[in-house]
Design a protein around this nucleic acid. Structure first.
Length: 175
DNA sequence: CTCTCGATGCGCT
DNA sequence: GCGCATCGAGAGA
């Protein structure tokens, strides 16, 4: 859920990827605890927002298991639920179907007006940007699992990990 | 200080 | 299917 200028933009998470700490060579956390990666080493449930390719923002939720010192989940796609026309305006693509407005990590941040000002933001506080429990899987839905996208540089061992999760067949997942 | 290169998306071919 | 935009983090000197 995103609140900007009194408007509420709502999306349902339909695709994400896990990044598992310093030993995961595909994770920014491999650089150790730095100014940039600090959120991943901080409190769970906070945001880690970074800039890729000099122009796109990506939103992560800080998360980790007991044995991990750092970690995050990259939000890769949302199914637009409310504030859809505002998302379309934010995207500047008036002809895109609803299902394409948030179908990519940088698309969803653009649609929801998310940038690095929200880096470190507490996603559990219910202010500006937050997570809320949905209704889970619907009757006919199932989760498809596969390797993460765009991390070949990490080498086959890490790029091959099946740490990408998406709703099978959902039209709002990334291409 | 300088160099390299990316957790991507778009527009054109 | 391919090239490119655009900038800062991190690494090396």
């Amino acid at each position: 859920m995103r609140q900007v200028n009194g408007d509420q933009l709502v999306g349902r998470i339909v695709e994400c990827e896990a990044y598992c700490g310093p030993t995961d060579l595909a994770s920014h956390a491999r650089a150790g605890l730095t100014r940039r990666t600090a959120p991943m080493y901080g409190p769970v449930g906070h945001a880690y927002v970074y800039l890729v390719y000099g122009m796109h923002h990506c939103l992560n939720v800080v998360a980790r298991s007991e044995e991990l010192v750092a970690g995050a989940v990259l939000l890769r796609a949302l199914e637009p639920v409310a504030g859809i026309e505002l998302m379309r305006v934010r995207r500047g693509r008036t002809n895109d179907p609803d299902s394409r407005l948030c179908s990519g990590p940088a698309r969803l941040t653009q649609a929801l007006a998310i940038d690095r000002r929200l880096d470190g933001h507490d996603l559990t506080a219910g202010v500006d940007l937050w997570l809320s429990a949905g209704e889970g899987l619907r009757q006919t839905e199932s989760v498809a699992v596969g390797p993460r996208v765009g991390v070949a540089y990490a080498g086959p061992e890490w790029a091959g990990r099946p740490w990408r999760f998406r709703l099978d067949g959902n039209r709002s997942v990334s291409r």
